[in-house]
Amino acid sequence: MSLLTRNKAPKLAEHNAGRKLFGSRAATIIVWIVAVVWTIPTLGLFATSFRPKVEISETGWWNLFLHPHFTFANYSAIFSTSTVSGIPNGIMPYVINSFVITIPAVIFPITIATMAAYCLAWVKFRGSDLVFYGIFALQIVPIQVALVPLLNLFTGGVHIGSFTLVPALHIAGKFLGIWVPHTMFALPLAIYLLHNFISSLPRDLMEAANVDGASHFTVFRRIVLPLSVPAIAAFTIFQFLWVWNDLLVALTFTGGTEGIDPLNNKLAGLAGTWGSHWELLTSSAFITILVPLVVFFSLQRYFVRGLLSGSVK
């Protein structure tokens, strides 16, 4: 046996080395070409945001690298708290709005989904599988389907005949009126992903805790939450990107209320009204892009680990 492996091992190593050496050089070149091509469009935006207004419309952005002529004027303009091209206080209020919308819209659904996922995975009851499949199925309901009825619920409540099932909530145009829809829409995917992860936690651990007489609440707090950090982090990235980058939900539920408009929403509007102000538009766009990038890169090591547990073995 040992002889056999010894005979084979060097051969295999050689073989692999040969394949890898040849394969790896070509692979590296191709991947880097794709990476560069993939980055060029974003680079164009980044470069434009550092160019003076007059040059943007006269020459292509690549001229910044041929004849360097940087300016920070665009950024100081959008961050100044005086009126910038018809926008009072620059874009800072919208940056704050985006954070105020996004942070709770990440925390709420993740908390509620983790609880539901634990229940469906470990507190089984008759029909719990059916509930799970039902929630899984809701993932594909296009949120467009839900917008109008939900908006009606917020402004008029739910009535069956003359019977009022839910009174008018009057939360449209308030932050709460965006947190709630985002929480609702996030739940199917969140529950599904977290359920995958939580149901793969070791059975012995759960049973040991039950034998010790710990309640489900204690198990949830002491065992499930700490162990689910990778999955929670992965979903945090997902949800943060989704809410920060969302246009449809914000458009529908802020109803253009100036005080609560998120940055992305404003940016879409500015693309129309600032059509001639490319220097302001590109710098604002870059700020819009920067925040999710920072979140993404700081949490990315969790991304695959949390997302794939259960589905890839």
Partner: peptide
């Protein structure tokens, strides 16, 4: 890998400006 993954973090509004 990160460079190719990066556009995923960009909103479609941002992407259309890009």
């Amino acid at each position: 890998k990160s460079l190719i993954f990066m556009p995923m973090a960009i909103s479609f509004v941002g992407a259309s400006i890009v």
